[in-house]
Design a binder for these strands. Structure first.
Length: 590
RNA sequence: GGCCCCGUAGUUCAACGGAUAGAACGGCGGUUUCCUAAACCGUAAAUCCGGGUUCGAUUCCCGGCGGGGCUACCA
């Protein structure tokens, strides 16, 4: 809608006042006022030395002249120009949209610059948890939203498959595992490796306590605990390419990755490509050496390599340890460079929690210093953490909300509610289970995505996620009722005359449907899927109100019937397409 | 200590600097011989405090107060 009106308003201002503006602000007309879209003109009053109301009237007249088919009329309230679209415009729009099921969604255009989105990016020493779910859903939704604006998107993750964390699991498995495998135990691979990570921690704490009891200070005890020494030894052997260590590492990583794949599949997220830290950290080291040669980095007496970012208000930052091994950021440097080499991308978006804001400032700043031309097109989509009523999730306190468990719980709740309501009575068993999964997932996904990404989310495991009100199932339910209506309507054509007057509820609905493309644009620009979620919720509220108040199949005449069916059909498309942008499926019945 | 983020009904969330601060859950009260009541309709209930900028501030700036994060030779 903006795409149509904004140029017209700019032209009107040019012709009336010789003003050239790059863009103007347009807002949906506030409820309770006549009109569809509103142009506030206060900001012009001073320069034009005219009362706002006079300006609004002049612009309104000019718009009617410029867009006679589209602008039906206007009214002025203070400095607000409320523009009403014409009944002919609405009718034309609605007739056209029923013939185009992909309303609002553009196909990716390969000639446009590509965008890479990184999300999830787990460590390979334990299963995915609620934090990864929020991350993955955000990344997946942002990808879909950007793609819907026509840009090609590549979805990726970096798998942190090397380092002390996986060495810990390896040591513990070797010590206590007795050859246990996912097959022998029936435990999902990522959970099995996670189990040994916990085992390591238990043993480690025991040893530290013992050493402390012998009079060793805590600092030393933590460093000198035998099992920790073994883990460090394991990491060293890995870096030196010890075949036995590499074999163990590969075996356990494969278990974990298989487990992750299952969870991703269940969650409904995917990746177009993957990077492994074990593949990129060496490139990272090379980049650090290059920066060292160019004098961008410097070496301390002990041999460690640093960068000084204090001129940008950041600190000095370690890039390579004294022993030459890499740290977290080393690998990130390598991965970024590799991605721009391997893919035709213009932009790289990292979906990573806000606790890493500082890390990404540093990373981007280093890449700029190194002179990479793409370095100013890196974005950190920094999202708030998911915390529990008692605070942060902590694996050692067992408060982590496991991804697989949570999904299962959502399915169970969906089943319970559906059966209590008697909704799925008589459905074939396989269809029932499929529906429960679709609904349960929708409840979870919508719950996490309707909130502004940068805000923290409070998650109370004792309270179940709602299925009523502003929820995923609420949106699905509206869709299902629409499907049922259309099914019962049989064959029908979106042929209807321009109504003398749209019913208020019909018009409210249309006004919102017309906004859908603007909403997608806005969500893509701000990397904010919550914009889509909240829009869909408003739309469905409006639709339900329409559905409640006005008969569709039993409409008073055939014109009205066709019009209301068309409205329902297009609303259904928007719900379905909009939810797809959030990674949420719709069932055909529920 | 330094840097960053966040404070909106009892609770969980909305509101490009715009009109009368919207919803949901929970509370209270209604609506099924009619297209699926996971719905609809009504009702009570909120911008942390103090300054400033502006025609207009929940939004921007300054200062408090409160909460969280980062400040690792962990990732």
């Amino acid at each position: 809608m903006k795409a149509l009106l904004e140029p017209a308003i700019r032209r009107a201002l040019r012709e009336l006042y010789d003003l050239n503006l790059d863009s103007v602000e347009l807002i949906p007309t506030k409820k309770g006022f006549e009109g569809d879209i509103t142009f506030p003109v206060f900001f012009l009053a001073k320069t034009l030395r005219k009362p706002p109301a006079a300006i609004a009237a002049e612009v309104g007249d000019k718009l009617k002249e410029l867009l006679p088919d589209t602008v039906g009329g206007y009214n002025v309230a203070g400095g607000f120009l409320n523009i009403s679209l014409s009944p002919e415009f609405y009718t034309r729009f609605l007739r056209e949209q029923t013939k185009r099921p992909g309303y609002g969604i553009r196909r990716p255009d390969p000639s446009l610059p590509g965008v890479m989105v990184e999300y999830s990016s787990p460590n390979t020493n334990k299963p995915l948890h609620l934090g990864h779910i929020r991350n993955s859903l955000l990344g997946y939704a942002v990808s879909a939203i950007i793609e819907a604006t026509g840009k090609p998107v590549i979805r990726t993750q970096i798998i942190n498959d090397r380092g002390i964390h996986i060495s810990k699991s390896m040591v513990a498995w070797k010590k206590f595992g007795e050859g246990e495998t996912p097959e022998s135990s029936g435990i999902k691979g990522d959970h099995l490796v996670g189990k040994y990570y916990v085992e390591f921690d238990k043993q480690y704490r025991k040893e530290v306590k013992e050493l402390a009891a012998q009079g060793m200070d805590e600092e030393t005890a933590k460093r000198e605990a035998p099992i920790m020494r073994e883990a460090r030894e394991m990491l060293k052997k890995w870096e030196n390419g010890d075949p036995e260590t590499l074999a163990l590492w590969k075996m356990m990583n494969d278990w974990v990755l298989e487990g992750f794949r299952e969870t991703y599949r269940e969650l409904g997220v995917r990746f177009d490509t993957e990077y492994f830290e074990s593949d990129t950290y060496l490139l990272g080291k090379k980049i650090v050496e290059e920066g060292l040669r160019k004098g961008i980095f410097y070496r301390k007496e002990d041999g460690s390599v640093w960068v000084d970012l204090s001129d940008e208000g950041l600190d000095e930052k370690l890039l390579l340890r004294a022993d030459g091994t890499s740290v977290y950021i080393t690998q990130d440097l390598g991965t970024a460079v590799k991605r721009f080499e391997e893919f035709d991308i213009d932009t790289l978006i990292y979906v990573v929690g806000s606790e890493q804001d500082y890390h990404f400032k540093v990373l981007f700043s280093i890449l700029k210093k190194l002179g990479y031309p793409w370095a100013d097109r890196l974005y950190h989509l920094s999202y708030g953490m998911v915390h529990l009523p008692e605070g942060k999730m902590k694996s050692r306190e067992g408060t982590v909300v496991d991804a697989d468990d949570l999904l299962q719980k959502m399915y169970d709740t969906a089943r319970k509610i559906s059966e209590e309501l008697g909704k799925t009575e008589g459905f074939p068993p396989q269809e029932k289970e499929k529906i429960y999964k679709i609904i349960g997932k929708a409840a979870l996904k919508y719950h996490l995505l309707k909130v502004d990404p940068r805000k923290d989310i409070l998650f109370d495991p004792k309270k179940s996620i709602d299925f009523n009100g502003n929820t995923g199932p609420f949106l699905q339910y509206a869709y299902v009722r629409i499907r049922s209506l259309l099914h019962k309507a049989g064959d029908w054509q979106a042929e209807f005359a321009v109504p003398e007057q749209w019913d208020e509820k019909e018009k409210d609905l249309l006004k919102q449907i017309i906004q859908f493309p603007d909403i997608i644009r806005n969500a893509a620009d701000t990397l904010n899927p919550a914009v889509v979620a909240n829009y869909l919720y408003q739309l469905v509220k409006t639709y339900n109100s329409f559905y409640q108040a006005l008969p569709v199949l039993q409409a008073p005449d055939s014109d009205t019937r066709a019009r209301r069916l068309a409205l329902s059909a297009v609303t259904g498309d928007v719900i379905k397409n909009g939810l797809a942008l959030l990674g949420i499926e719709v069932p055909e019945r529920m």
